[in-house]
Design a protein around this nucleic acid. Sequence first.
DNA 1: CATCGTGTTCATTTCTATTTGAACAATTTG
DNA 2: CAAATTGTTCAAATAGAAATGAACACGATG
Lengths: 176, 176
Amino acid sequence: MPAKTSTLATRKAAARRPSGGLSPLEVEAIDLFISFVRLLGMPKSVGEIYGLLFASSEPLALDALMERLHMSKGAASQGLKVLRSFGAVRSVYVAGDRRDHYVADFELSTFASAFIKEELQPHLDSGAARIGRMEQHLAKLPKGEREAANARLAKLRHWKEKGEAMLPWLLKFLVA
Amino acid sequence: MPAKTSTLATRKAAARRPSGGLSPLEVEAIDLFISFVRLLGMPKSVGEIYGLLFASSEPLALDALMERLHMSKGAASQGLKVLRSFGAVRSVYVAGDRRDHYVADFELSTFASAFIKEELQPHLDSGAARIGRMEQHLAKLPKGEREAANARLAKLRHWKEKGEAMLPWLLKFLVA
DNA sequence: CATCGTGTTCATTTCTATTTGAACAATTTG
DNA sequence: CAAATTGTTCAAATAGAAATGAACACGATG
């Protein structure tokens, strides 16, 4: 079987979408996930890729993503890397094809817990470290100021605790 | 009283910080809030301003922010506008001074509820609208594909509901 | 083992978001 | 009411993030 040959399913799908265009449903899904990933501070391309994979019933290879999303190979590769790291996407085996094929993972929970661990938790940790350093500085302050500054620090500690209490809850909520 | 004259408190504070420099405590607070607002996708300047106000025991006017943070008047004005819109900052009256003076509001709850209403809720709403549109498109699909696509849409609806259930809870958690 | 197919990386380019700085509006002061 | 002070707005400049495209690494294939 020559390398260029595609599966039957792929050929049928392509027939419905001449020139690699996107169906209205796909466009809507892509838009949805673009705005979602932007909310999380990720590049648009990540949303495009996930959106298309989400809408697609067959696994898609890198070239398919490039072609249908009008995206460079580099961007597609980077985007998939991010999505893999969050467990939002995984590669599936396709017989007789050397390329990697990807499908969207639909479990919100894996995605959420990865995001919390990789993005939120580190922020909380560095925040806690900073509060620690602030306590050091506080000790060296003249007595008059120390009192007022300490009240503020207490607020910070309180927020830190709120945050630390929230993450596990958030996780549980999303997994449930 | 000539316009250039500052309050007694301001003069004393300035004496400890020649050339408008920042104390280590202030730097630490500013760093903390910069990384926080960046996490929420807001410009750095917003974090700088809130950080300095948070650390400062006296209310600060626009020129003080400009000078101490080496920031243009425009940026300071914009930043304060955002912070006011979130209720993170409010202006207080200072006798004998024409300028607006600002203090940080420490209530996490007002801040959080403003953020949820202004940022998160609109996203959820537009997401819901998009799901509606997707349901329209789905109806026009050939029967074979409709089934698979519908399963995906069910997932989306589920996430939407999760999101809608989460916001009120999040709010309650942060206010408590 | 030379070539081809596939995917990654990274310097450069392109695009977007933020900041600047100056013009303006509004208000106060002498 | 003219001049000075304060704050806002917005076009232009700048900094920062993301995408491109080409070079590279790696394995497969003949």
